[in-house]
């Protein structure tokens, strides 16, 4: 039998999951846009955007990994 407090905690975790998942998807859409833009610029002979785009993309990936680690830690908590 799940207690009322435990149900409340489950609901909170589910809400946190959905919010982080939405943020994760937003960052991935940003990364896809950066990747496509970089390719387009490279084909046009503009090489200056490649490095800043790569830095931002790596930061986005880092944030995503950080969120995933945070979710695992949240699940381990009693």
């Amino acid at each position: 039998m799940i207690s009322e407090q435990e149900q409340q905690r489950h609901r909170q975790r589910a809400a946190v999951y959905v919010v982080l998942l939405m943020f994760n998807l937003t960052l991935i859409i940003l990364q896809i846009w950066l990747f496509a833009g970089t390719l387009e610029n490279l084909i046009a002979g503009k090489f200056s955007v490649a490095i800043p785009a790569a830095v931002v993309s790596v930061i986005c990936a880092g944030v995503n990994v950080w969120m995933l680690v945070g979710l695992y830690r949240m699940e381990k908590r009693p």
């Binding site: 982080l20 998942l21 990747f35 490649a50």
Partner: peptide, 23 residues
């Protein structure tokens, strides 16, 4: 979430590859 994070890492690697190629 794990799959999307993996995809995010792949995109970041691709962007780093493009940056290296541009150099």
């Amino acid at each position: 979430f794990k799959f999307m994070t993996l995809a995010s890492g792949g995109l970041a690697l691709g962007s780093v590859g493009l940056a290296a190629w541009s150099q």
